[in-house]
Design a protein around this nucleic acid. Structure first.
Ligand SMILES: [Mn+2]
Ligand SMILES: [Mn+2]
Ligand SMILES: [Zn+2]
Ligand SMILES: [Zn+2]
Lengths: 124, 124
DNA sequence: ATCCTACATTGGACTTAGTCCAAGTCAATG
DNA sequence: CATTGACTTGGACTAAGTCCAATGTAGGAT
């Protein structure tokens, strides 16, 4: 456990945020000025491997890192401003995929992304 | 309707494929050697705007273009080799998102991505 | 306390996917 | 034929991320 890794963990701790690697880097630099982008990428990659952090790719832009890895959830994304909310739909989408639609795959996971407009962006 | 646009449309026509822009370009070049990448990107963008083709981003790599835009469907992706299959789950995931989980958003669309291993990749 | 070594960190070069733009092409219209 | 305007082209540019050789350092061994 180095100072760099501690700082990255601190940045991700707490709120339900969905930060890009560069946003994580910017906040980490505020606490430890000489931390490098490469180290932020390395540390995020390790946290993802450990299952402590999830990668979320809701758009074509940068991947986002989600510290809320323990409570399974899905995402609701605003098409206008990109805002992301955690959502907890009822039902189990895995159960909605019949065997005849699995083509012999071993299906282990499902991601659901809802898209729409947030209250702000839908106020034309 | 120019020769270039016709060729891009031809490449996407037919099978249920999910090609990247560069794959579309490679196949287009085989029919019209001097077509440029920029034109392929322009034409794909127009087809997406017209609703004739869907953009699919199942991984962090390149976007894929899906000509199967008229029959709504979702995707099953192999974590090993990246193979993509169209799937038609039962149920309506939009109905599974209660109002209390919509945070005032106008929710218009939902994408579901199933992940697992294809028969080939799961044979250890 | 000092040395050693394995591992972590760094900065920069490199890659991939995509966007942007000024210049060139071309077909239709007048 | 000349004008016009949409379409195309190649190349420069950008954003996000990866890779790597050189350097730094934590912490166990002596
Ligand atoms: Mn989340
Ligand atoms: Mn499809
Ligand atoms: Zn919004
Ligand atoms: Zn596979």
């Amino acid at each position: 456990m180095t100072a760099q890794r501690r700082v990255v963990a601190e940045v991700l701790d707490g709120e339900h945020v969905h930060l890009t690697a560069d946003e994580v880097h910017a906040r980490a630099v505020a606490k430890l000025p000489e931390i490098s982008r490469a180290t932020v990428y390395n540390t995020l990659g390790e946290l993802v491997s450990l299952g402590e952090v999830l990668e979320v790719t809701t758009d074509k832009r940068a991947k986002r890192y989600d510290p809320n890895a323990h409570r399974p959830h899905h995402h609701l994304v605003c098409a206008g401003c990109g805002a992301i909310r955690d959502v907890h739909p009822t039902g189990n989408p895995l159960a909605d995929l019949p065997d005849s639609e699995r083509f012999g795959f071993t299906v282990s996971d499902v991601e659901v992304t809802y898209r729409g407009l947030c209250p702000n962006c839908s106020a034309t």
